[in-house]
């Protein structure tokens, strides 16, 4: 296979479960036979701060960090954070984002406003834009906490990986008692 690298960036707020989502992606890429690297930051930045996780796969991956301007897919857990990291993407990249807002400190204190019309601003730069009602679909699947899995399902449509591989990755990474709901949530996301 040709060494084309696919670059995925997962962005959101510390504590949103970004690390687990990036683990499931990595697992699926390894199961599909690719080389995989991922990179993230732990520690102080996880205390409610802005978080970016990088996942890359292909025949042979060198850098664990996605080079600036080469992101293929932006997987957003929160709207403002998704907008913040658009410059990491290449032209024509896909953006899949949960329709979810978390106010940063200056907004909580009433010193700044949460930016308006972010979906429109993102879409004007990246036409392959999908806004997902992650929480709503997760609730429909049986548990609001499965919102990230809905998102994974939506992202999976943009990756050339067989459905069975995704199922295998979820079975490995999700606790058994939550598996059924997560498989359902994944399917809802994949249908979008």
């Amino acid at each position: 296979m040709e060494n084309t690298i696919t670059n995925i960036l997962l962005v959101g707020v510390g504590g949103q479960g970004i690390l687990l989502a990036s683990e499931i992606l990595s697992e699926a890429f390894m199961l599909a036979g690719y080389d995989v690297k991922k990179s993230e930051i732990h520690g102080m930045s996880q205390r409610g701060g802005s978080v970016v996780s990088h996942v890359r796969f292909g025949k042979e991956v060198f850098s664990p960090v996605v080079p600036e301007g080469e992101g293929d897919i932006l997987f957003g857990f929160e709207l403002l954070e998704t907008y913040r990291y658009l410059s990491l993407l290449k032209p024509g990249a896909s953006v899949v984002v949960n329709d979810y807002k978390i106010a940063p400190p200056s907004v909580l204190l009433g010193q700044a406003a949460y930016p308006q019309a972010l979906p429109e601003k993102i879409k004007s730069n990246f036409p392959d834009f999908l806004l997902v009602d992650g929480q709503g679909l997760a609730l429909k699947a049986g548990d609001v906490r499965a919102a990230n899995t809905v998102m994974l399902g939506a992202v999976s449509k943009r990756l050339q990986i067989e459905e069975a591989v995704w199922q295998q990755a979820l079975e490995k990474m999700v606790p058994e008692k939550a598996l059924e709901i997560n498989l359902k949530a994944f399917a809802f996301g994949r249908e979008l």
């Binding site: 930045s45 205390r47 409610g48 301007g69 403002l80 913040r84 410059s87 400190p105 730069n125």
Partner: peptide, 20 residues
């Protein structure tokens, strides 16, 4: 030199870490 155009975004509020 690289010629990849990059997207410019409007300034947005920062999100520093905070106590829980």
């Amino acid at each position: 030199a690289s010629t990849v155009p990059s997207v410019t975004i409007e300034p947005v509020p920062p999100r520093p870490p905070n106590m829980c």
